[in-house]
Computed example of a mutant assay.
Amino acid sequence: MLQRLLLAGMLSGLLVALLSFGFARVFFEPTVERAIVLEEQTDSDHGHAGKEAVSRATQRNLGLLTGIGSYCVALGGMLAIGLGCLHGRLGLGPRSIVWTLASLGYVSLVLVPQLKYPANPPGVGSAETIGSRTELYFLLVLLSLALMAVSFWIGVRIRRSHGSVFSVPVGTLAFASMATLLVSAFPDISGVPSDFPDSLLFTFRAQSAMLQLIVWGGLGAIFGQLAKRILDPRISRASAYVGFPNA
């Protein structure tokens, strides 16, 4: 059963990757291109112009598709493993569990870290601090995920002892409180130049957020439906009756 869920999760990731690539290629890449033009102009003014290691044609086509595809397939596999571990233990259907995992994953892995360190376009941030900024970001991601796991465990314990009425509010409050303390404990890093266009920065961050919503929301919708077909016994029996595979 887990193998079928993994296959369905990775297939869902491929489908979402194609959708996300289309959005990124049409809307996101032109914004990145504008930021790169500004970066090249600044480098040229300071005499730091250099040759690209990978051409922009490769970056915005094969490179973009490969990156998004790997990301989405990996997330689909992780959702499948999570569903396999939780199915039958929460009193929820497969689709509800997938949507729950996708929502919690988005909040902990994307929303909380980017509230502290939002996505920046090319040309924003000092090259000397890129190592420390990257380390801080991934540390925040890991700690946010750990806090979400603790909050989820608290919610499950409350659900078992006091019912589902209190489990969601208590779990949400626990994560919100711990995440607020976590974010406030990390140092502020402002690498946005004063002359960088505000409209371009806003557009880049808004499109980055929309791309992540497409990824996580698409996985919740597509994989949730496939998982229901695999794990719902009524659908499985009906599929077998008419001669169709239930995967």
Rank of each mutant, 00 (worst) to 15 (best):
G171H: 03
Q207M: 09
S12E: 10
L18H: 03
L226S: 05
A247R: 08
D232W: 02
V37C: 01
L2E: 13
V156K: 06
A185L: 12
Q59V: 05
A149T: 12
F27A: 15
I36Q: 08
V150G: 06
H87Q: 08
R34G: 13
V150S: 10
G84E: 04
A238F: 10
Y137I: 01
R160Y: 06
S164G: 03
A146E: 06
E40N: 15
S239Q: 07
F196R: 01
D43E: 15
L226V: 06
F244T: 07
Y106N: 09
S164W: 12
N246A: 15
G69Q: 04
G220H: 07
L147P: 00
Q207L: 14
V242M: 10
V170S: 06
L231M: 09
V26G: 04
L219R: 05
I158A: 03
L79D: 09
V98N: 02
G171Q: 04
A24E: 09
L65A: 14
G163V: 14
L86K: 00
T42R: 15
S96V: 12
A179E: 06
Y117G: 03
L62S: 11
L101I: 06
N246D: 14
W99Q: 10
A176H: 09
Y106P: 01
I230P: 01
L142Q: 13
L75T: 08
V242H: 05
R25E: 02
M10H: 04
E40A: 11
G77I: 04
S236G: 12
S190D: 15
R95F: 02
L139W: 12
D188H: 14
A102C: 09
L7T: 14
E135V: 15
T66S: 13
G84Y: 01
Q41A: 12
G67R: 01
T203D: 15
E40V: 08
A185K: 07
L139F: 10
D232F: 07
Q41C: 04
E33C: 00
A221D: 03
I81P: 02
D232L: 07
G69H: 00
G50F: 11
K228W: 07
L83M: 02
T58Y: 04
A179F: 08
L92C: 00
R25N: 04
M10W: 13
A238E: 13
K51S: 14
M10R: 08
A174M: 10
A206V: 15
Q212F: 10
Y241K: 11
A209C: 05
A74L: 15
F202G: 06
I68H: 00
P122C: 08
L181K: 07
P169Y: 06
V26F: 10
R133L: 11
P169T: 11
A146I: 08
L15F: 11
G131R: 09
P118W: 08
F23G: 01
A127I: 00
V150A: 13
I189H: 14
Q114C: 11
A206I: 10
F186L: 11
L200A: 03
A8E: 03
G84H: 04
L136V: 00
I81D: 07
F21P: 03
